[in-house]
Measured scan of single mutants.
Amino acid sequence: MAAGGDHGSPDSYRSPLASRYASPEMCFVFSDRYKFRTWRQLWLWLAEAEQTLGLPITDEQIQEMKSNLENIDFKMAAEEEKRLRHDVMAHVHTFGHCCPKAAGIIHLGATSCYVGDNTDLIILRNALDLLLPKLARVISRLADFAKERASLPTLGFTHFQPAQLTTVGKRCCLWIQDLCMDLQNLKRVRDDLRFRGVKGTTGTQASFLQLFEGDDHKVEQLDKMVTEKAGFKRAFIITGQTYTRKVDIEVLSVLASLGASVHKICTDIRLLANLKEMEEPFEKQQIGSSAMPYKRNPMRSERCCSLARHLMTLVMDPLQTASVQWFERTLDDSANRRICLAEAFLTADTILNTLQNISEGLVVYPKVIERRIRQELPFMATENIIMAMVKAGGSRQDCHEKIRVLSQQAASVVKQEGGDNDLIERIQVDAYFSPIHSQLDHLLDPSSFTGRASQQVQRFLEEEVYPLLKPYESVMKVKAELCL
């Protein structure tokens, strides 16, 4: 049975990233139509530049190519590739079939990587351009969430054990800070992308030097003109047959890092959902379990974690691919890159769409948070109580021993009897502590235990987050809708 299948058929496997999760716009960027249309555009740009620099290419040939950029006979191309065992030459023939007058000058002087690699770089750039505003929107939604809850005390956790208090907004800023680093890295790697350009079979530009009869300047002009037509500021000066596969490492490393950030955020949300302090959106008709109707599973956060793990592992592909590119190139890269580049971007696209949807509907339960604080705060307040007693004339050592005994009794009630923490009640009825009984409410005010959390939130948002989001103001209103 021949390899390949009808990918629109229910009898043929289709990647869930495309069929179930990723956005239509990201799927289109990695589609065959987008790819092969870009090949034709690159052939047109090459012909236009070659004509401008004096090669015998007519206006009629150029116009014929322009008129057929979208006229792609995919069936013919597939048949040609089956016959020739070469995808680029299959599309040269297919393009030439609908451009008979231009057929002889299509791909003039070029090698397969002229269309293959340059198209990949265009796709990487455009895919990054799709991700950047999506990530900015996630940051914006979380920034709104953090600002609104900047002063809401909550129990902090280290080692997932109760620690000092923080605020809900401050905790959210930990998430935002990681995503801001990801946004900066995505922008950097996007701006650092260079075009492969017009380089020939081993990167020496020998074929173009021959076409222009040894004119170095025209060869350099050709490279520059096509690079500018493709919208790049610069091209690699040095290439082998391909652009260095280190570029793929750079791009997928940034995406993998984004995956790590999203995994951490969504894990926190899942843990908070278990504590009943916070939940992701839950639709009115949504079913959490087929057997347990009360369940409210954090399905979206779980999906993000599941896909983020996949995204983090994909960076190993370009690392290994770059390491086995012998001399000017081997074909070890080809099949692998067809999979890992598309999957990385479709996965990143999915987790950003999902995280935006989550961040637009996060639900906080202040009463649950308050109750958990009441359970733990008495123990945390013991040092403040000791200091207040010393100020009232008591002995630190005597007070410490009193607190120690009462704390152990209260802990026994919590752990052995399943009761509430009654340390404060014990202190309130103990005559030894009568000098500070009137101060206990103040000493137990949760806001006095959150330090500068709310001020940190305000400063972080104003100095770091809002300036970073400013270039994306025009796209901030787009909502994230999930079908599944």
Rank of each mutant, 00 (worst) to 15 (best):
M26I: 09
P298K: 03
L341I: 13
G451L: 02
F195L: 09
F449D: 06
L209M: 07
L222S: 02
L461G: 02
E80F: 06
M89F: 09
G393N: 08
E302G: 04
E370S: 09
A291M: 01
L331M: 07
L469C: 13
I238L: 04
A18W: 09
D215M: 13
R245T: 00
M476V: 15
F145G: 05
R196M: 15
R404Y: 13
A453K: 03
L311C: 01
A77E: 07
G288M: 04
F145S: 07
E464W: 07
S257Y: 08
G197C: 07
K35L: 10
S289G: 01
Q61S: 09
A163V: 01
P100C: 04
M65S: 00
Q205W: 00
A348D: 01
Q241W: 00
L355F: 14
I436D: 04
I139G: 09
L377S: 04
D398A: 13
F379H: 13
L319F: 07
S395C: 13
L362F: 12
L377K: 03
S23L: 06
N274E: 08
R245W: 02
S140D: 14
I351E: 01
I386L: 01
D129G: 11
K295P: 04
L331I: 11
T94S: 13
R329S: 03
A322P: 03
G361Q: 14
L84G: 07
G418F: 05
L482F: 14
F36Q: 14
H159S: 02
S151V: 09
R85Y: 14
K224A: 13
Q409T: 09
D6S: 09
T119D: 02
L341T: 14
H442M: 12
K367F: 05
K246S: 04
L53I: 14
H93P: 00
Q416M: 12
Q416C: 09
I123C: 14
I427Q: 04
G259A: 12
K264V: 05
A344Y: 12
L311F: 03
I369P: 02
Q408F: 09
P56Q: 11
Q375F: 09
C483W: 05
V405Q: 15
E462L: 14
S407H: 04
L352S: 08
R452F: 09
P471I: 15
F379W: 07
Y432V: 07
K233P: 10
S474Q: 14
C173V: 04
S289N: 00
F208S: 02
L314F: 13
S15N: 15
T450A: 08
L124A: 11
N421T: 06
T201K: 02
T201L: 02
R33G: 08
L211S: 07
Q241L: 05
R404P: 04
F232N: 02
V390I: 11
S359V: 09
E328Q: 00
D73V: 05
D223G: 09
T313G: 11
L346P: 04
N68K: 09
F160Y: 12
I287R: 00
M89D: 03
A273Y: 02
F157K: 07
Q41M: 13
R234N: 08
L142M: 13
I62V: 11
A411F: 07
R14L: 15
P446K: 07
F379Y: 07
V405F: 14
Q51I: 07
D120Y: 08
S253I: 10
A392E: 15
V251R: 04
L352W: 02
S306D: 02
F212T: 05
M312T: 08
D87M: 00
G104V: 11
Q458D: 14
G240C: 01
R40C: 00
A2S: 13
N353C: 13
D11V: 08
I139E: 04
Q320P: 03
R234D: 10
I122C: 09
K367W: 06
E425V: 08
I373K: 00
H91N: 13
P10L: 14
E60D: 14
H97E: 12
I373G: 02
H107S: 01
L255W: 02
R374C: 04
R296L: 07
S12W: 12
E360P: 05
L42T: 09
A308R: 02
A260M: 05
R188S: 04
E417F: 12
L69N: 06
F30V: 11
K367V: 02
S9E: 14
E48F: 00
M278C: 10
I351P: 01
I287L: 06
Y472R: 06
V413C: 06
K134C: 13
C483S: 15
A47R: 01
I123Y: 01
E50N: 04
V368R: 11
L46F: 05
Y114R: 01
L440T: 02
E213R: 14
V405D: 12
Y472I: 13
G8P: 14
G104E: 04
A335W: 03
A348Y: 01
T244E: 00
Y432I: 07
R141N: 10
L55S: 04
E220C: 08
T244V: 00
I72V: 09
G197D: 04
C483G: 15
A392H: 11
L84A: 09
H97P: 00
V254I: 11
F379G: 04
A260Y: 05
G4E: 15
K147S: 11
G116L: 06
H107A: 00
K479S: 12
R125G: 11
V457F: 03
K246Q: 02
V226P: 06
H91M: 10
F157M: 08
A291F: 03
I351A: 11
M389G: 06
V368G: 05
I436E: 05
R141F: 12
F282Y: 12
A410M: 10
Q286G: 03
L108D: 04
V475E: 09
S306C: 02
M292L: 03
L44P: 02
A260V: 04
V92W: 01
F236K: 03
V414E: 00
L209E: 13
I139S: 10
R188I: 05
F449H: 09
Y472H: 11
D333T: 00
C305H: 05
P281M: 10
K479I: 11
A431E: 14
K246I: 03
K170V: 00
